[in-house]
Amino acid sequence: MKLINRYVSEVGKHLPLIQGREDIEKELRSTLEDMLEERAEKAGKPADEAMEIELLKEYGSPQKVAMTYNPHPYLIGPRVFPFFLMILKIVFFGIAIGLSVVTIIQLLSQLSTGVAFMSPDFMKTILQGVGNIISTAIAAFGYVVVAFVLIERFVPDFKIDFEEEKEWDPAALAKEPDADSISRSELIAEIVFTFVGLAILNFYPQILGMYFFSGEESFFIPIFSDVFLKFIPWINLIFLAEIAVDIYLLRNAVWTTATRVAKIIIEGASLVLAIVFVRTTDIIGFTAESFANSPFTPEQAERFVTVANVSITIGIIVVVVIVSVELIKAVIGLVRSLNRK
């Protein structure tokens, strides 16, 4: 019986960490002992090691036996796989767009500081950009996989209702789009950009700035000053709320009064924040002092500061306009839906 005991504990080692592991071992041992006993009876002699070896050989390798007890022979199962693919697409799309924009901005700022088009420095930036996209995509893939493995293991009730699975009425194809129905692609784009914004703000704040190259030296000036830092928690809050509402909308595929109100609150908060931004002095990093150690002459620096401040202000105003439009759209949607009821 020595071999059976060793075999059983070997199977135990390969069993997944599920409840009833000892129970499985106990049942397996009892079965093997039964089988061995039966063989001994048939052979008309007491069980010996040769019989044990024969039996265990037939029963199969410990790994194989342990595998049959594994209820999750996969990392990410069929239940969450469609949603996993969807999130992966969103994340890859977001990384490709976001980092391409970053690279293009870097290239433009290089060109503006005298780096020649297609010169080695210029090509280096392009290659670095491509490398960045690939490495960030691989890292992001890892994070998404880890997140979904955790969902697979620990959130047994997780389920996304894809439109196809719901009761689907072919007549919907002929109908005009409902005012309450959502635009999936718009939502996905919004999630992507909010996510990219969130990632840059929190993990790569150093790319929010301008690189100047002059010969061997490079020189960096951040767009925003330290005053900006105290806004980051508020921006995070708004962005996260936005992503949460968007994901909720993606799942439910239809606007409700609650989601409309949530959207209005979020857009309203963004608007307030943007206005506070415009009214806060010293928030922009491009100042005469920030150019103090730069290879530029004071006149050049002054010109940069003026251009940068004007463009950033214009940028914020554009954001204010976009947010206002979104806010008005959400309010109109709410009023209309309330009137219909």
Partner: peptide
């Protein structure tokens, strides 16, 4: 066996 025991569980 590899089918039956896990199935019973």
């Amino acid at each position: 066996q590899g089918t039956l025991y896990p199935l019973l569980r």
